[in-house]
Amino acid sequence: MSLDPLLLEMVACPAEDHGQLRYDEQAQTLTCESCGRVYRVDDGLPVLLVDEALVASDADLEEKA
């Protein structure tokens, strides 16, 4: 399931050191390009809770860039 492009323009990483979010449709995740937090997308809705986010390693971020 893909996310609405308008929704992607409006959502932002809730962490202090936030940046632009990159959507991975296959994994159903949003990754912050600044802090590396990975947020899941459940049934087309981003779960933007810092406490539930995973932190991508630097290697993961470089692979996807």
Rank of each mutant, 00 (worst) to 15 (best):
M1A: 12
M1K: 12
L3E: 05
L3C: 07
L3N: 04
D4H: 06
D4E: 09
P5W: 07
L6Q: 14
L6Y: 15
L6H: 14
L6M: 11
L7R: 07
L7A: 02
L7K: 01
L7G: 04
L8C: 01
L8W: 03
L8S: 02
E9C: 02
E9W: 09
M10L: 15
M10I: 08
M10K: 11
V11N: 04
C13V: 02
P14W: 01
P14M: 08
P14G: 00
A15M: 05
A15P: 03
D17H: 10
D17K: 10
D17A: 10
D17E: 11
G19D: 01
G19N: 04
L21V: 05
L21H: 08
L21A: 03
R22T: 12
R22Q: 12
R22V: 14
Y23H: 10
Y23C: 04
Y23M: 06
D24E: 07
D24N: 11
Q26M: 06
A27S: 10
A27N: 08
A27L: 05
A27E: 14
Q28R: 00
Q28W: 10
Q28C: 00
T29E: 10
L30G: 01
L30K: 00
L30E: 03
T31C: 06
C32S: 05
C32E: 01
E33Y: 05
E33W: 11
E33G: 11
S34P: 04
G36W: 04
G36I: 02
G36V: 04
R37T: 09
R37V: 00
V38D: 08
V38I: 09
Y39D: 00
Y39K: 05
R40E: 10
R40L: 12
R40M: 05
V41A: 01
V41Q: 03
V41H: 03
V41F: 07
D42G: 08
D42V: 15
D42K: 13
D42A: 13
D43I: 03
D43E: 14
G44A: 09
L45P: 05
L45R: 07
L45D: 13
P46W: 02
P46I: 03
V47E: 09
V47L: 08
V47T: 01
L49R: 08
V50P: 11
D51C: 10
D51V: 05
E52D: 15
E52C: 07
E52T: 08
E52H: 11
A53T: 05
L54V: 15
V55F: 10
A56H: 10
A56S: 11
S57D: 15
S57F: 14
S57T: 15
A59V: 14
A59C: 13
L61H: 09
E62P: 08
A65Y: 15
A65L: 13
